[in-house]
């Protein structure tokens, strides 16, 4: 299934993601990594560690509604894979990101922005394995 090329909105969204990362560091002194934030909610280490993460996820989840109120249109989310892929992929995502200490936001944005060698290596590796996985699923097995 094709999706439209959206360089301007994607750039605008990227700028906001970067802004949120900078604000979280400036105000709370933390890395805006989604996996770390989610881990800190489900495996809490005390109230003060839990509460800001829960508030931040609540803010993230408010985004579609806020955009609906602002623009009148609901964001387009198309899941082009069967539910089983979401379950299997989800477990693998959680396991891998936890083992590797980060995901797209933690390593790919925050870590790379700090020029961390670990994050640069992790990002290169997961970009490669993601592309390879998509290739195998779309052109290897089914294609």
């Amino acid at each position: 299934m094709e999706t439209a090329f959206t360089p301007l909105t994607s750039l605008a969204g990227g700028l906001l993601i970067g802004l949120a990362a900078v604000l979280l560091m400036a105000l709370h002194g933390r890395i805006a990594g989604a996996t770390g934030i989610l881990s800190g909610i489900v495996l809490p280490a005390g109230w003060s560690e839990w509460s800001w993460r829960a508030a931040m996820v609540a803010g993230m989840a408010s985004a579609p509604t806020a955009m609906m109120l602002a623009t009148g249109t609901y964001p387009e989310i198309t899941v082009p894979v069967p539910l089983a892929y979401l379950i299997v992929g989800g477990v693998i995502v959680g396991f891998g990101a936890s083992l590797g200490n980060g995901c797209t936001s933690g390593h790919g944005v925050c870590g790379m922005a700090r020029f961390s060698p670990r994050s640069i290596a992790a990002t290169l590796v997961f970009m490669a394995t993601t592309a390879l996985t998509v290739f195998v699923i779309r052109h290897g097995i089914g294609g």
């Binding site: 989604a34 892929y85 995901c103 670990r118 992790a122 592309a131």
Partner: peptide, 20 residues
């Protein structure tokens, strides 16, 4: 780190969603 990142990518490629 490297194994974790590699595994994460496989999951991302299967599901299309990342945590963020």
């Amino acid at each position: 780190l490297i194994v974790g990142a590699a595994v994460f990518g496989i999951g991302w490629g299967i599901a299309g969603f990342c945590p963020g």
